[in-house]
Design a protein around this nucleic acid. Structure first.
Lengths: 385, 385
DNA sequence: CTGTTAGCGCATTCAC
DNA sequence: GTGAATGCGCTAACAG
């Protein structure tokens, strides 16, 4: 077996330093006329050289082996202070930037997590993302963001994402999870955020984290009923999003607890323009209600404002409550009664669970639920401070 | 040189299929008792196997070479329909997910761009990110997000990021660019968003894209002056952010154009609480003004609301204008006069320029400037519709 | 404390 | 149209 060992072929930018020529220091400058210091590569100034320094060039420059370079860069093994300095200098003068892909290949980890969300309008997604990125970074992981809305081939995009991450977190409030489950077939750990168990296929490799919805929705609805309102309408479409449907369930439950039967939901998308349309249907008499429980604040705000502009009194004529506690809800008059979710924590939790899973932990059998908080302001009928 | 060619060592999960044994179909199932179909790997159900399928296992399963597998997966070279199907079936049954890192190493491209922003509160960063991600995705690039705020070692984080992307976009409205320039030393293409030339070192490899500030700030200020206001105050700290300083320059210019001299800026950070504090200084008489030109909407909104709560009339007693046109600015009464920036387009442009640069294009010598738009509502003194 | 040596999994010439 | 061989740059045993 003592055949010629595999020997790295000579690279164009590296002189053929034969192993029989152990010139200790700058063997790189040998073939080059020693006019300019080797620090400046012979490229047009201001232009990134086509190929950067590698661990080999650094090792050569420092007069050590690539293993040693790797050691000082990883900071793992012990290296003598002298050689460490030589290496660091070489790194510096060569402007060495390691190639992440090569490391990933060697360590068999991408050291990155994917996050799939529909878009980024409103504070919900942003806070989620901030929580996720923050925790992921603490755990030494990069985050690759995939915005699903507007992508023509979401399954394809998710598949591509799977190619470069160790795990994926996905927002359940969309048609994403089924798509994703199909695209992944359990090959990567998945954490579904704000989804609900029945909606998530491929269940054995996915895990759920969410904010509590049913109970707080019931609580909020009960509060509105306590204000003496009797004709409540739920505004929002429970079908596509598990969390919205859970909130509607709470709405129904609050009615049932008093022997009342809840009205069917007013199914509209989450757009401000839709809120205006709903308000108009109320103004025209098509819809009758003395209180509106809206699936989110955007809807609630646009409805309330439109109603007010048309001369209706909120909450006098009609109460309006939302969900999410966006900034605007603090600024409008009356203040919007709403529910605050621990969205940031949800992101943190998702990153955390993903990390556990990638580390080999089994998925938690039951979803992790984070508590929410009802925020009472004026729009529900509470006295304004 | 006819020594033993380098031969892939046998992997534990791959049987030693000697080249002399060209069993066409399922050579993989040979050593295994053919009880269960080879589709199901012998791992505990529901648990991701420690190591997934590789291009080798797919090739073996399909009875072709890895080159052919690569061809059908890349869709580049022509492959006969028959073999293409065999490969696709193998991919399917093996649940093959390619390893992005290996591809990156081979093609010598990460196919990913980094985006560095301070945080994600408010619509500005979100829209920027959406524009950036959308365009990057269209260009076949992933985006790795780095949130700088709260990171203890930003230069380190940026350096790490540089390890795994082909180029980096960074928001200039922060102390980021210098840090970044130092961390990168021109080894990767960089696009600075909303920065200003003098603030950006390492200029030869960086490029600037921004929204126009000076002129629109001058225009907005002139408009306020046209309302008959004479004691204007600029609220916000021009120092740390180039765009804020440019807006102040416009503020000053508008005064100068009428032979007036602008007051020194009221230097406060961009927090709502700071706005409240500024309002209190006005209420107490410490600050005197009949109009406030604020560096952004958050500041303007919190000031205006506080003033109103204290019984002041906006714009009667004092006009307040902002910058950014956030959602709340449409909802408050009076509506907030502000300036709308093409933030989404800024993100798109950044991704686009980065792509050009990675493709080898030289950085544009002059910054690309996108036009902004003054949005007149009631808070400046204009009649409310 | 340091160097040698194999791979990691994929894309890619070349041959055929 | 297909296969064999090679290298991308790095980490990690394994020797010394």
């Amino acid at each position: 077996m003592a055949t010629t060992p595999r020997q790295r072929p000579q690279r164009t930018d590296r002189p053929s330093a034969a192993p029989t020529t152990p010139s200790p220091e700058s063997s790189a400058s040998a073939p080059t006329p020693a006019t300019t210091p080797a620090t400046t590569p012979a490229t047009t100034p201001g232009v990134t050289p086509a190929v950067g320094a590698t661990i080999y060039s650094v090792a050569e420059r420092a007069g050590v082996s690539i293993a040693t370079v790797s050691r000082v860069l990883q900071g793992r093994a012990v290296v003598s202070e002298a050689t460490r300095q030589k290496v660091l200098e070489a790194v510096e003068s060569l402007h060495y930037v390691p190639l992440g892909a090569a490391r990933s290949l060697a360590v068999r980890h991408h050291e990155a997590y994917g996050l799939v969300i529909p878009e980024l309008t409103g504070p919900y997604y942003s806070e989620l993302l901030m929580g996720f990125e923050t925790r992921a970074a603490e755990l030494g992981q990069s985050v690759i963001l995939l915005l699903a809305n507007g992508k023509s081939d979401v399954p394809g995009a998710v598949g591509h994402l799977a190619t470069r991450v160790d795990g994926i977190a996905v927002l359940g409030s969309a048609a994403l999870p089924p798509t994703l489950a199909r695209a992944l077939r359990g090959r990567k750990p998945v954490v579904v955020i704000a989804g609900s168990s029945p909606h998530v296929p491929g269940g054995d490799s996915v895990e759920l984290v969410a904010a509590e919805n049913v109970h707080s929705a019931e609580q909020l609805t009960a509060h509105v009923l306590d204000h003496g309102r009797s004709r409540l309408l739920y505004v929002g479409d429970p079908d596509p999003a598990p969390d919205i449907s859970e909130r509607y369930a709470g709405f129904v439950a609050a009615h049932a607890a008093r022997g009342l039967v809840a009205a069917e939901p007013v199914r509209v998308p989450f757009r401000e323009s839709e809120g205006v349309a709903v308000a108009d249907r109320i103004l025209s008499g098509e819809l009758e209600a003395d209180a509106l429980v809206c699936a989110n604040d955007e809807l609630a705000l646009s409805i309330m404002t439109r109603l007010q502009d048309a001369g209706r009194d909120v909450p006098g004529d009609i109460a309006v409550v939302g969900w999410d506690d966006v900034m605007t809800s603090r600024y409008v008059r009356p203040g919007m009664t709403t529910v605050r979710q621990p969205v940031h924590e949800l992101g943190v939790l998702a990153a955390e669970r993903l990390h556990q899973r990638v580390d080999g932990a089994a998925p938690l059998p039951a979803p992790v639920l984070l508590p929410t908080e009802v925020v009472l302001r004026g729009s529900c009928g509470c006295p304004t401070p």
